[in-house]
């Protein structure tokens, strides 16, 4: 079987949006795809050794909340101190209870399956990020490097 290729750009750094790149990449790898993820802007948070990602209901009317709160709880109040931490903790508990993998586990599975993780060098410089805060095995490169692989990919996703 000819090896297919999947290229993903991960641009978001919240707990919920961290899942799609890692779920799709690990699954694709299991199906025999050669896979690369290019992390840029807030997506770089997904490469930190210490993942401290959060989820917020603020500005996200589609997010289901406990007790159907999304239907009656005033949007403005979701900006209150502690709301983000509370929703993050609830989301993590919910995920664990439903047997959804942790991000650390999915990321590790991606690396085991030889998914290539590429950090956008420009973003690292822009935000003065310290590459020692990132996990090992990450390649640092730019847009041209992404296109080298994406140009021959069968599937290319922007997340």
């Amino acid at each position: 079987m000819e090896e297919k290729k999947l290229a993903i750009i991960a641009t978001k750094g919240s707990l919920d949006w961290a899942y799609p790149p890692f779920i799709l990449a690990s699954t694709a790898a299991a199906l025999g795809y050669e896979t690369e993820i290019f992390f840029t802007f807030y997506g770089l948070q997904l490469l930190k050794k210490d993942l401290d990602l959060k989820v917020t209901p603020l500005g996200n009317p589609g997010m289901p909340m406990p007790m159907g709160m999304e239907k009656w709880f005033p949007t403005l109040l979701t900006a209150l101190p502690g709301m983000e931490a509370m929703m993050t903790s609830m989301m993590k508990k919910k995920m664990a209870s439903k047997g959804v993998a942790s991000l650390e586990e999915l990321r590790e599975l991606c690396q085991e399956a030889e998914v290539r993780l590429i950090a956008c060098q420009m973003t690292v410089d822009l935000f003065d990020m310290d590459s020692s805060a990132f996990i090992d095995g990450v390649e640092y490169a730019g847009a041209a490097r992404f296109f080298e692989f994406a140009g021959q990919s069968d599937i290319c996703l922007y997340i």
């Binding site: 779920i23 690990s26 699954t27 299991a30 047997g99 959804v100 993998a101 399956a113």
Partner: peptide, 14 residues
Amino acid sequence: SGLNCPLPILRAKK
């Protein structure tokens, strides 16, 4: 058992 997508597939592959 108890594992959710995509873990069953990933474990099977492994």
